[in-house]
């Protein structure tokens, strides 16, 4: 595991053993996909500065380049122009100091929940005892206790996504990237997952970039919400949510700051695309 060389002060004090959070900086980033048929400009002129330990949510219409942005940070894609920095280091290839969660849990169906989580440890050659202890801690934190030996097809969508989240957090990544992680879940499960994610973020102190289609999810979870415009994706506005880090779900949804931020984001999205 490559540790970031600088910017190692998490905004929220981390629990014992938690990895230091890292910052993310995008400067004038553009991404163009070239194919024989057509060229697509997925992102243009995107600049974003995420502090270590910060929770940033990204919302925007479909196809505006949200997934592309996360893949840039992970080093799964390279920018056509501009700079991407993670933990102060320029991103040039796949980065190992991140955790990634997709909309689909992407679990290995021949492995139990626990062994899916431990895939991360096996590939990184982590100390088995350390990895196992960390996995147990995450399993407890996400309420997966008792399902360690269950196979993915025996788990509900919410449970599968919890496994994916545990796997992404096993190596205590300085940055957690989540691409519409709860998009396929029912509303109630989604609320539960939001509450859990808020608690996990506070305990681990990791930096989080979350792509979501849900405005309330974005406002409930994030310090700041990035609103993007339709293709080619640009940053329309960045909204400071201004809520305390620890947030009770129903209490937060009733707060005036929450409502103001949500209404403002809805306006922005409505202004840029009528259909989303």
């Amino acid at each position: 595991m490559t540790m970031p060389k600088q910017q190692t002060t998490p905004r929220v004090p981390a629990v014992a053993g938690a990895g230091p959070a890292a910052g993310v900086r995008l400067t004038d980033v553009a991404v163009r996909f070239r194919s024989k048929k057509r060229d697509v400009t997925a992102l243009s002129d995107v600049s974003l500065d995420v502090a270590p330990g910060e929770f940033v949510a990204i919302v925007g219409p479909s196809g505006c380049g949200k997934s592309t942005l996360l893949k840039l940070v992970a080093g799964l894609l390279t920018a056509s122009s501009g700079d991407v920095l993670l933990g102060g280091e320029r991103v040039t290839g796949p980065r190992h100091d991140i955790g990634y969660v997709f909309q689909r849990a992407a679990l290995l169906e021949w492995r139990s929940a626990l062994r899916n989580i431990l895939l991360q440890a096996e590939i990184r050659r982590m100390e088995p005892a350390v990895a196992r202890a960390r996995a147990d801690e995450l399993i407890r934190m996400t309420g997966l206790g008792g399902f360690e030996d269950a196979y993915p097809h025996e788990l509900s969508g919410g449970m599968q996504q919890r496994v994916a989240l545990c796997r992404a957090l096993l190596h205590e990544p300085p940055v957690l990237l989540m691409d519409e992680p709860f998009g396929a879940l029912d509303a109630l499960t989604r609320e539960q997952m939001n509450t859990e994610l808020n608690r996990i973020w506070r305990t681990t102190g990791t930096t989080v970039l979350l792509v979501t289609h849900s405005i309330s999810e974005a406002v409930y979870l994030a310090d700041r919400v990035v609103v993007m415009s339709p293709r080619p994706g640009t940053v329309t506005e960045i909204i400071e949510v201004g809520l305390p880090a620890e947030r009770d779900y129903s209490e937060t949804l009733g707060r005036p700051e929450f409502r103001a931020a949500a209404a403002h984001i809805r306006d922005l999205l409505g202004a840029v695309s009528a259909h989303d």
Binding site: G99, Y100, I123
Partner: peptide, 14 residues
Amino acid sequence: VDPEMLQLSATMGA
């Protein structure tokens, strides 16, 4: 094989 699974393994440094 699921392309997202391959991307995950890339981020794990496989």
